[in-house]
Nucleic acid binder design. Structure first.
Lengths: 348, 348
DNA sequence: CTGAAAGCGCTTACAG
DNA sequence: CTGAAAGCGCTTACAG
């Protein structure tokens, strides 16, 4: 395949053409003050020698690596990977590489990732920390690198925008959906107390229940977790404690699916005997057997807006973009019964 | 927070202590020939000045970036993200950063990613290309960078190890599972013809059927795709063409789930009237409603072995590690009926 | 329009 | 045990 050596650098190209390294550099970077003839020669030589510019050297001198870090709890979580895919898409269109780091909600790994990002001179950092201890906050506050929080809110003392779903409002909408359809005894399966997202949804549930004057005895709460398995056991516990519930709001879809599984195993008809509403709109929710009514997190939009905010900050570090609080969207399927209507489901 | 300036480099540390840059560097890198006193002073100064070594500069001079690229079709595909999580885990333990690129099976993006990896001086490349055209093969053959193929086989003309599941053998095992249980009329829902994985599984189906003397009229094949939706329509088509089938082998779990959905909508009992076996062992397969018998891809093991092979090649570029062909594992659940046993299911 | 030179922030022989 | 110097592969004022 011609004269290509194992590895070529800009010096080789210059030597090959008998011109200076600076001219080659300017031609390569499309500077306007290079003669068209020279530019063509350079392009041909690059082709011929199979030269590929060294981005590391370029990054060192320009102090720009075209890399942004994306810290996520777990890449194999469906919401995370959807978010990641959207962020990546927006950035790769602009020539940026995005580097993920799965932290598994471990503060030590979160710190490791941020330190790494500093060392490696990333141009920006997108963070989804679960708990941000004081040490990390102070680390971030000294950072001269744009930061945006994704699916989180900006911690106290930091000055960075966030992009998140309005979990509180969405949870409230979910509960109102049930109440509007005549439900009063509504249970809640919570995510871990440490989860910000989870506590917002819980707040939405509680506030909405009391706003409608539904007394504590109408409620029933149990801490589930995040997984299908946890949803199953949570539903069992919830039902045992509050057998009179007509509806359950599960703080995420996986919990809701677990709840549905348990109910089905107990031969309880959904929504005939009990209604279920979830949160996330995972693929699971659309399955024929679940037909789960749920609040959709618009992951594509979130990733895109997050990337946009970051791109804007990288262009102009002076002014912060405003944070985005995105509305979740109600996706109605078959898991909620309208108690006010003539029942169309046969109880058995 | 003390005397930390916006950004510190090794020169600042040296100046602060009144010693040379080279001594600081040696202390930082734990060279043995640095006096303990000096080393302590350096460590304290680093702490005090909040110095973080610039990995870009280090990478430039050492020609090692501690970065490996992982090219995958789509990070939001469950198998891909599981594989990615496992690869990432193995590498991050060793101080490597892994950079994903979702190519969406687009050769242009695949090329883009490889070019990018060259520019950015990655230390290694893990590839899962769907189609590798001649141009890409020649690009890779000139590469002085370790490459391992994951969930693929090494293309003709390239000299790199691969780590993959033995799809052919596993598909054969799936079909034998059905045959052993008395099934003879076995249908197949295929993945796209362009998929290597898919054609291996198809080959396994076909060869096993004929090995058992099950004539073409016992078979029924239809090209599904990859998704639940495609599984649904494929099952409809398959049933229409071959109503006498007693079992169906779906080339992946998503197709199998779609098939199950369609069968259930048609009020056909699984496994009472028709058995279904899948491939992948996704979370979907364990759902209460599906209880899908399937072949598990050991993603954790694959990712780990792939990382190990890469690490070995980076250590000693001379000798190639041998490729790994990993056995899939049969996961028996409730979607396959044993026709030889006394039927425990009531037909309705 | 082009070239020589300095420099990005490190590491690494080489001398002492 | 320590320091001065060269150099990794680029870019970018500066001069001409």
């Amino acid at each position: 395949m011609g004269v290509k050596s194992i590895v070529t650098n800009i010096k080789d190209v210059a030597k090959y053409l008998g011109i200076s390294v600076s001219t080659v550099s300017r031609a390569l970077n499309h500077y306007p003050d290079v003669s068209p003839i020279t530019k063509n020669q350079v392009m041909d030589a690059v082709e011929h020698l199979n030269y590929r510019p060294n981005a590391v050297a370029k990054g060192l001198i320009q102090k720009k690596t075209f890399t942004v870090g994306l810290m996520i709890p777990d890449i194999s979580d469906p919401i995370c990977s959807l978010l990641a895919a959207s962020v990546e898409k927006s950035f790769s269109d602009q020539g940026y590489q995005v580097v993920y780091g799965s932290t598994h909600r471990d503060p030590a790994k979160e710190k490791q990732f941020i330190l790494n990002a500093i060392s490696r001179q990333f141009d920006g950092l997108i963070l989804t920390p679960d708990v941000l201890d004081e040490e990390l906050v102070s680390l971030l506050s000294d950072l001269r690198m744009p930061v945006v929080f994704l699916q989180r809110r900006t911690p106290e003392g930091l000055n960075a925008p966030f992009v998140d779903v309005d979990h509180y409002h969405a949870a409230s909408a979910a509960v109102r959906n049930l109440i509007t359809r005549g439900h009063q005894r509504i249970g809640f399966i919570a995510m871990p107390a440490s989860s910000f997202t989870g506590s917002e949804r819980k707040r939405g549930y509680l506030d909405t229940m009391s706003a409608y004057g539904l007394m504590p005895e109408m409620m029933g709460m149990v801490e589930g977790g995040r997984t299908i398995e946890q949803g199953r056991t949570a539903m069992a516990e919830l039902y045992q404690r509050c057998p009179g519930l007509t509806a359950v709001f599960a703080a995420n879809d996986l919990l809701a699916v677990g709840a549905l599984e348990w109910l089905h195993q107990q031969h309880m008809n959904v929504p005939g005997q009990i209604s279920v509403i979830g949160f996330d709109n995972l693929e699971h929710a659309a399955l024929h057997w679940t037909q789960l009514t749920t609040m959709e997190q618009p992951t594509e939009e979130m990733g895109r807006k997050c990337a946009l905010a970051m791109l804007r900050m990288m262009r102009d570090p002076k002014q912060l973009p405003v944070s985005e609080l995105i509305e979740a969207k109600l996706i109605e399927r078959g898991s909620v019964l309208n108690l006010n209507a003539i029942p169309v489901y046969t109880m058995n």
